[in-house]
Amino acid sequence: MKSLKVFACLTAVLFTGMTVASCGSSTGAPNPSQTSPTPSRECAQFVSGAPCEKYTSTAGSDDGTPISWVTAGELTAQLSKRGSDTYLTVVMPCGPLDAVVTINDKIMRITGQRALGASGCIENLGERQGWVLKFLEGSVELGYSNNTLTWTNGKDSLSFVTS
């Protein structure tokens, strides 16, 4: 019991110390040299004629075989412009991916920085995320027809509709 009290006190002291250290000496007024402007975000289209919105998965195939988990809306995808770069944000079963892409003649490629969000995968969700990341390697052909956005990479495909 005594060690539990010591642990609780030690935890409180460490938490307080971290809080004070993270605050630093602030007067409450912003310091212009320490702040940077947040890049403006504007929606970008995957292909001409497609709505500039967030998309939710409706179907997918792996080497031509349907993937049942994709139809459950397991993925969302959105493009945005930040400065001169175009960013693809894909929310997968275990976390998000944010990557700089280029789109030329309906071909999308990850060409710049990538940020993969913290993952907390259980059971086979990690395999699903791995499949999506592998799918996004190389060239992804984009199409839009009948209110459906399609991505194709070889014999693999994903289909989306607006959320």
Rank of each mutant, 00 (worst) to 15 (best):
K2V: 15
L4R: 10
V6F: 15
A8H: 14
T11S: 13
F15A: 13
M18C: 13
V20H: 01
A21I: 13
A21K: 08
S22Q: 13
G24M: 10
G24F: 12
S25L: 10
S25F: 12
S26L: 12
S26T: 14
A29N: 13
A29W: 14
P32H: 09
P32D: 14
T35L: 08
T35M: 12
T35V: 15
S36L: 14
P37F: 09
T38L: 15
T38D: 06
P39R: 03
S40T: 13
R41Y: 12
E42V: 06
E42N: 08
C43G: 08
C43N: 03
F46Y: 06
F46K: 01
V47P: 10
V47Q: 01
S48D: 11
G49N: 04
A50H: 03
C52K: 04
C52W: 02
C52D: 11
C52M: 04
E53S: 11
K54H: 02
T56C: 00
S57N: 00
S57P: 15
G60R: 01
G60H: 02
G60Y: 11
D63W: 09
T65V: 14
T65N: 06
P66M: 08
I67A: 07
S68V: 12
S68L: 05
W69N: 07
T71P: 15
A72I: 10
A72P: 14
A72T: 15
E74T: 14
L75R: 03
T76H: 09
A77C: 11
A77R: 07
S80T: 14
K81M: 13
R82G: 04
D85I: 05
Y87M: 12
Y87D: 05
Y87Q: 10
L88H: 01
T89L: 08
T89S: 10
V91K: 05
V91W: 07
M92N: 02
G95Q: 04
P96H: 04
L97N: 01
V100G: 00
V100A: 02
V100S: 02
V100I: 11
T102V: 11
T102Y: 01
N104K: 10
D105C: 03
K106F: 02
M108T: 08
T111K: 02
G112Q: 02
G112I: 06
L116E: 05
L116V: 12
L116P: 06
L116A: 00
G117A: 00
A118V: 09
G120Y: 01
C121S: 04
C121G: 04
I122R: 00
L125P: 01
L125T: 05
E127L: 01
L133K: 03
K134G: 09
F135I: 05
F135A: 01
F135W: 12
L136G: 06
L136F: 11
L136P: 02
G138I: 11
S139P: 15
G143A: 10
Y144N: 02
S145V: 15
S145T: 15
S145D: 14
S145Q: 09
N146G: 08
L149C: 12
W151Q: 03
S157P: 10
S157C: 03
L158M: 09
L158S: 03
F160S: 04
T162Y: 05
T162D: 06
S163I: 08
